[in-house]
Amino acid sequence: MTLSIWLIVSVALFCIGLLAALSRRHAIFILIGIEMMLAAANINFIAFWRFAPQPAQPIGVMVAIFSIAIAAAEAAVGLAMVIAVYRHFHTTSVDQLDRLKG
């Protein structure tokens, strides 16, 4: 159980999130992909904290807690935007939201 195995698992989770964010057309799925990437980053923070020599303060854990709080705020605003966009354009497909396209 070395640190590199944890990093590889978190890279796999990150890339699945990237896949969801890049290849899905539905706006909610792009948000889900971003949340997955943030979770992968949190796993990295906690893994580096666990495998490093212990400092006086649990820095990695603190960063992960703040990152979860900010990700929750981001999800709330993002989903509110999806609802607002749906009301306005009657679609949540990001391919059809091309009014600003030149």
């Binding site: 890339c15 290849s23 057309r25 497909s93």
Partner: peptide, 15 residues
């Protein structure tokens, strides 16, 4: 919805 296969290639390359 369509599925964008370009995203799969990018994700595999990043991985």
């Amino acid at each position: 919805r369509g599925f964008n296969w370009g995203g799969v290639i990018v994700a595999i390359a990043v991985f």
